[in-house]
Every structure is written in C-alpha cells, then in structure tokens.
Nucleic acid binder design. Structure first.
Lengths: 158, 158
DNA sequence: CTTAAAACCTACTATTTCTGTCAACTAAAT
DNA sequence: ATTTAGTTGACAGAAATAGTAGGTTTTAAG
C-alpha cells in the first residue's frame, strides 16, 4: 500500500503554493516546473482539490490557483481526503457519518475481527494527519533552509 | 492507498490459524474454506510468510502450516513487513539499517519536506502495529463471541 | 513399495489502477 | 477580437494486483 502520486504530488504542489506564492494566483506551469510534475496531470489533481474546497481558481491572463484557506487551516488530512478518499487501508469499513456505504468485500461484515484493526489504524492516521498543516510544512522547509523562488512576475514592476 | 489483498488475507489467515488451530498443522484448504480465500492464492501468501519466519510448514499427509511463534509474539507489523515491504505510504524514504536503497523517485532527495511527513507517519504506524498481536485479535474475537471451528480431524478418534 | 495428501515452485493471464496525454471548450483580461 | 489560461472528458500505455494452473517434491499410511 503506497500513496498514489495524486496524493504525493498534491501535497507537494500545495506546499509549493503555500511556500512560494504571494497573494497573486499561481499558474499550474510554474508549480509544475518547480516541482517537476507533468502540468496536464497536475491540472487534474488540482481539479479534485478545487472540488474539495482546498483551492480556488481564477481564469484568464494573470489567472491561476490560490489556496482557499490559510496554510495553517489546511491539514494533510484534508488533502488526503480529496486525493485518496475517506478511508486509507481498506474499503470495507464505514467511516464518518456512514452516509456512503462501502462494498462489503467479505461476507463477515460487521463481525470481522481484522476490520477493527484497520479501522483503529485509520482513526489513528486521520487524527495524526489532522494535526499537520501546510504551515507546519513551510516552517520545516524554512528550517531546512529551502530557498523560496522569487516571483518573477514582480520583475515587471521594478 | 489501500492494503493489498496479500496483507488483508494474510492477517485473516494467520488469525484463523491462531484462533482455530491446536498443536497440529493446519492445511491451506481448511483456512481457505473458513476464510473464503482462494486456496492457490493463499499458498502463495503463505510462502512469503514462511520466508519471513512467521510460519513453519510440514509437507505430506497430515502436513500443513503452524505459527512459528506464539500468537502474542506475532504482531501485525511483522505480518505487514512480510506482505507489504518495509515502508507503507511511500518508497522514497530509507528505513531501517539502510542496506536496501529505494528508488529516488524525485530529484530532491534528502531535502524534500514532504518526505518527512510520510516518514513520520510510517514510524507512527510501525509503532502502532507493533503493539497489536495475533493474541489481541483472538481476544477480540472471543469477546465478540466468534465461534471456533471444531477440528474435524478429531472426529476419527472418538 | 505404492499411493495419496499435502506443501512447493514457476509461469501465465486477466483485471484493475495508475499515470499521463490530447483535443475541444469556456471564461476572463486587454 | 484576441490571447491567455483554466475546464472537461475521453483515452491510452504502463504497471501493479489478483488469481489460476501445471507440475514437482516430500511424507505419512496402507
């Protein structure tokens, strides 16, 4: 069980957005270049993140994407929810409000012992990822001495 | 990111072994029947678990598989290590003694901020799964009132 | 010694998921 | 009007997963 690239790229891209962007929207191609992710593919990922309410977009010249909330209000959990779905590990557990049912998968639904382990693990991870935000990532990056890219659109105004 | 069936079946099968077996070896076909897993597929999974030192086997008539250690000495972590490999979540982190290198995956090796999150999560899960053993599963099963199957090989001796 | 029951090994196939590309379309700014 | 950039849905190649199959070896029992 590995995270899909949608999750890994998604987190990287959102971090990039939080770390390198000012108040202006950032284009997919810039993030794509900095993070070395196929721009077309990144567009797809960003669509999901937009649907999930993590990103907002602006079309046209000088358009691009912006974080919908402040970095400290976007957790890894939020991102994974958009890219991986409700439950990590297995599909056969019912999570949250239980509106969406999952495929039963095995006949022993409800009385399956192993289900409880995956459910516990899922809760643990959800809780953990809920406490890590984009702001934390930015702080780590700064502590590691990661360079911010100068916004080259500013050049025109100098 | 979902667990592979090898992991889920593996845990189920080992639990079954711990819960339903006496001192005699248990055949793949019995576990397969009780847990509704394809016997041929289960054989493959058991080979890995044997290589990992979790199972021992005996060939020939009245042969089968036995747990290599006591149920309280086999953790979910041990099982996942055999079925999923060293690291959950991502491949680009170096775990353990570092003898086995992973594919770099991204150019930013070593100075990647997001890598640290997956690494943290991996450690957390490893720690957690390390504390849950087959014995715990058996206790949960008993608490849930799960019936043990009578070993029908005993019938002949009545 | 023969037979049969079981694990063991290797290869193959089908299915699904992942990853990425393409083309046509729509909206916004100049 | 034109250009820039996001939107959408379809689609294709690659890789991983899941499961099947045939044959071999070991061993207990008759």
């Amino acid at each position: 069980m590995k995270l899909s690239t949608k999750s890994r790229y998604g987190v990287r891209a959102l971090f990039d957005l939080a770390y390198n962007s000012g108040s202006l929207p950032t284009q997919v191609q810039d993030i794509s270049r900095r993070q070395d992710i196929s721009p077309r593919y990144l567009e797809q990922i960003f669509q999901n993140l937009k649907k999930a309410g993590i990103l907002t977009s602006k079309r046209g010249p000088k358009g691009g994407y912006t974080l919908a909330r402040k970095p400290e209000e976007i957790s890894i959990r939020d991102i994974l929810l958009a890219t991986e779905g409700e439950s990590l590990f297995v599909d056969c557990i019912v999570v949250g409000d239980g509106r969406r049912k999952r495929k039963p998968e095995c006949g022993l639904n409800g009385c399956c012992v192993t289900q409880t382990i995956w459910s516990d693990a899922n809760n643990l991870m959800t809780e953990h990822f809920g406490t890590v935000t984009l702001k934390d990532l930015c702080e780590r990056a700064q502590a590691m001495g990661l360079k911010r890219e100068v916004d080259n659109r500013m050049m025109y105004f100098i």
